[in-house]
């Protein structure tokens, strides 16, 4: 089985250098072994989908990529995760700086109880990314445009972000993440709390974002993975079972477990 994974990886590495490269990653929650020897290479300007049944560790692994797991006391991460060739778990790395480069969007839209403008300006403000108010206005506008929500909110930037619809809120959260000028965007089931129309909007946005960012998306829905991603990784019980081009995974999976999952026999 291991051979198969390595084989798959080699295939993906040949074309472009990796944005993120994770080797032998293990995660423990107290006594529970949540992630077991995971190796993944994430390519730039690609949407990578993590799929798998609930509790398989895909979200946990995602949270390792910007060290969000640091905020949980009992969580222990071992192995190597390199971002542009630099170990993000190195002692010299400040997780705060890392997270500016690796942004994150969450399952439930979580706009801060502030105005839309303040929500987007939050990241640039804490990271000190602007000199003048005009700079900040530009950053906010660009972020909102890239998140494809500028037209909907440009007239009410002072309104609270919590007053928007779920799909709009989630795009505000994406805009908020974009505003810190990240290289990588991590999305943890970004559409699971949205209705089908909002989901379509966000999926479209994710596809556009690929132009500027590496996007890693955790999703419950195989259709979504098939629609938006170029690469797909299948997790099962903490193991990375298979990682390959999305088309390959969905048409010709190598591992029987992947096949069972895709055809709906486990999950």
């Amino acid at each position: 089985m291991k051979d198969q994974i390595t084989h798959g990886l080699e295939n993906s590495v040949t074309s472009t250098p990796s944005k993120i490269s994770a080797t032998q990653v293990n995660v423990h929650y107290g006594d529970a072994h949540a992630i077991k020897d995971v190796n993944v290479e994430i390519a730039p300007n690609t949407v990578t989908a993590f799929i798998g049944p609930s509790g398989c560790g895909k979200s946990t692994f995602l949270r390792c990529l910007n060290r969000m797991n640091d905020t949980i006391d009992i969580c222990r991460v071992t192995g190597n995760i390199l971002l542009d060739g630099e170990d993000i778990y190195d002692r010299k790395v400040d997780p705060v700086q890392l997270r500016a480069k690796v942004g994150m969007v969450f399952q439930k839209p979580n706009p801060f109880p502030k105005s839309i403008y303040d929500n987007i300006a939050y990241g640039p403000r804490i990271h000190g990314l602007f000199k003048t108010k005009a700079d900040l206005d530009t950053i906010v506008e660009n972020a909102l445009r890239r998140a494809a929500i500028w037209d909907e909110v440009k007239d009410r930037l002072d309104a609270p972000g919590t007053g928007l619809s779920g799909g709009q809120q989630q795009r505000i959260c994406i805009a908020r993440a974009i505003a810190t000028a990240p290289d990588v965007l991590l999305m943890d089931e970004p559409c699971s709390a949205l209705d089908p129309i909002a989901t379509a909007q966000v999926e479209e946005l994710i596809d556009e974002l690929r132009e500027n960012y590496s996007v890693v998306i955790v999703t419950h829905s195989m259709q979504q993975a098939a629609r938006v991603s170029q690469k797909t990784a299948f997790f099962h019980l903490g193991n990375l079972v298979e990682y390959d081009d999305t088309t390959k995974i969905f048409t010709n999976p190598r591992d029987p477990r992947t096949e069972s999952y895709i055809t709906g026999r486990i999950g």
Binding site: N66, M68, T71, P95, V96, Q97, L98, R99, A100, G103, M104, V105, F106, K108, N110, P111, F112, P113, K114, Y122, G123, I126, H127, C173, R176, A177, T180, L186
Partner: peptide, 27 residues
């Protein structure tokens, strides 16, 4: 104050105190 707000702030690279001062306390 919901944990999701804190996560949102950490996810953007805020330090803990920034999260508290700018997100948790106002909320």
């Amino acid at each position: 104050v919901p944990q999701s707000l804190r996560d949102g702030s950490y996810g953007l690279g805020a330090t803990q105190s920034e999260t508290i001062k700018r997100v948790v306390l106002p909320a």
